[in-house]
Design a protein around this nucleic acid. Structure first.
Lengths: 135, 135
DNA sequence: CATATACAAGATGAAGTTTATCCTGAATGA
DNA sequence: TCATTCAGGATAAACTTCATCTTGTATATG
């Protein structure tokens, strides 16, 4: 029921890029050092965030990473799913066909509904909002 | 963000014991066969459920397992936590002291709040209710 | 246009977790 | 007494997580 370390790193990374709001690309090693994330691991994470359309990458000299849109338009859900794929409490929520019981299982609707609650909550949390609120 | 297979087995097991409502103890192999759970694995799971006060065990001839209280008084949260321990979306919710950032982290309150939402939802789901509702 | 810089993508692997299984011991009903 | 049944510990295969490294590719700049 926990997010992984990788997802936590991804969130910290987007948090950093949102906070600085730099118009110039930031290199991996800068983010890694500031946020205490292993650089080589962060490189992989940023690849996923880029493929998900959350970050933009620039190669070569003066290259690095930027957000591809404003923090206001990046939700916590988007970042979590960019790393972990579609989230669910129970596999049967995503693949009912793989569960022998799903058609008659009294718990199935509970997992489905909880999934909805969690995804809607995370979708409503954007990075601008989180940074503005007092801790 | 998913419950484990073991937790899913535990839920199915309590579901079975709730459904049959037997006053006589039911042996592991019966539950295992009915619910498609590996018997030796279920034995371990029932140990955890027993220690958590959800099930009662009886050794020897005519032994087996029973619920230690009515399905009405067993919540989905209790079963999940009996297997996985306290649930949380992020380790920092349970151990803020292990996170360098928790005091100033804008995401921390989000995880804390989501944890509350999820635990309250699961706590409200008892096995009598789930069995009564149409699927 | 040469070159240093920086990301892309794939291979690799250590460590930890999950998902079991088996064995010995202890309790218990008949 | 004895067959039955759970308790608890040891063991291990399979999988996931967390991380690193290497080779390749793009590019700004002098």
């Amino acid at each position: 029921m926990e997010i992984t370390q990788e997802t936590d790193y991804a969130v910290r990374c987007i948090l950093f890029l949102s906070k600085t709001g730099s118009k110039k690309p930031v290199v991996i090693e800068t983010i890694a050092a500031e946020m205490c994330i292993p650089g080589s691991f962060l490189a992989k994470i940023l690849q996923k965030l880029t493929k998900a359309g959350i970050a933009k990458s620039f190669r070569g000299n003066k290259g690095g990473f930027q957000l591809s849109k404003g923090p206001r338009h990046i939700s916590l859900l988007a970042v979590v799913e960019a790393i972990e794929g579609p989230i669910a409490m129970n596999r049967c929520t995503i693949h009912p066909e793989r569960c022998n019981f799903s058609r008659t299982c009294p718990v199935h609707p509970v997992w489905t509904n909880l999934r909805k609650i969690v995804t809607e909550y995370l979708a409503a949390m954007d990075f601008e909002m989180m940074l503005k609120r007092p801790q």
